[in-house]
Nucleic acid binder design. Structure first.
Lengths: 139, 139
DNA sequence: CAAATATCAGATTTACTGAGATCG
DNA sequence: CCGATCTCAGTACATCTGATATTT
């Protein structure tokens, strides 16, 4: 084991890479991207949101919101219309199709979390999550 | 706190992003890239290596080894010569300048590890590292 | 001829930036 | 005129793939 492989920063980036690989692979098997799941989750409560609000909730750049919504509209998962109250905005709302899609993806995402954490016993999982919460970026 | 922010995969990716940001910023302050540090570390024992061997030790793609070595040669940190025993290969060796550079960068990298883990007490640091080692990708 | 090595050009992914158009 | 919103084009970064020339 070299020094590189024992650096905390390296361990973090490799573990993150593995986790991301598992999650995006499971989503890809369902024909979805991570961005789509994040946007559907933001809309899953049912309340219509502007694209800025979606970006804020899903932690996505405005550009990526625009592009991903175009794909979701094509799938019929969301409805995007100009806001009658403020023509600068779009009002985006999840459809029935989108609700079903989100439920399906949410199950996949939950299973992926379990898969990612499988190498750890319950106690170590708890410690890991506690530590990771303390290591989150400021904002 | 939304569901997104509590997903283990999300916590991992955000913590990794923060750690990477801290490390690469500290290295950038010294005018170095992460790749340079990783290659210098691989060569720091003093043994000459082929570029394939460097890529293997530093976990870098062959392409990135080639490009990064060109920069390191320009800095005088390494010496790259055709292998007299096998003309397909280059023999790369660290120079005195490279040793000094590596020592300087190693101190920066060590300080960055401390900075990354600063939000955690000793026990949680230990648990985190134990968990992360179990979450490393195969291979 | 098959395999290995280094190099070059470019694709890919995720995240972000700048500029234009529209509107409040 | 200023600021917010959405869209488009393009940048930045790390990583990887394909093609090529050379040598074993």
């Amino acid at each position: 084991m070299s020094a590189l492989n024992d650096l905390p920063t390296w361990l973090l980036s490799q573990a993150s890479h593995r986790a991301h690989g598992i999650l995006s692979e499971r989503l890809a098997e369902a024909g979805a991207r991570g961005y789509e799941y994040r946007i559907l989750e933001a809309l899953s409560e049912g309340a219509p949101l502007s694209q800025v609000a979606i970006g804020s909730a899903a932690r996505l750049d405005r550009r990526d919101v625009t592009v991903t919504l175009t794909a979701l509209v094509e799938q019929g998962a969301v409805d995007r219309q100009p806001d009658p109250a403020d023509a600068r905005r779009n009002v985006v709302q999840i459809t029935e199709t989108g609700h079903a899609r989100f439920a399906s993806l949410a199950a996949i995402v939950a299973a992926a979390q379990t898969e990612v954490l499988a190498p750890l016993d319950q106690e170590l999982q708890n410690s890991l999550l506690q530590a990771l919460r303390l290591l989150q970026p400021e904002k």
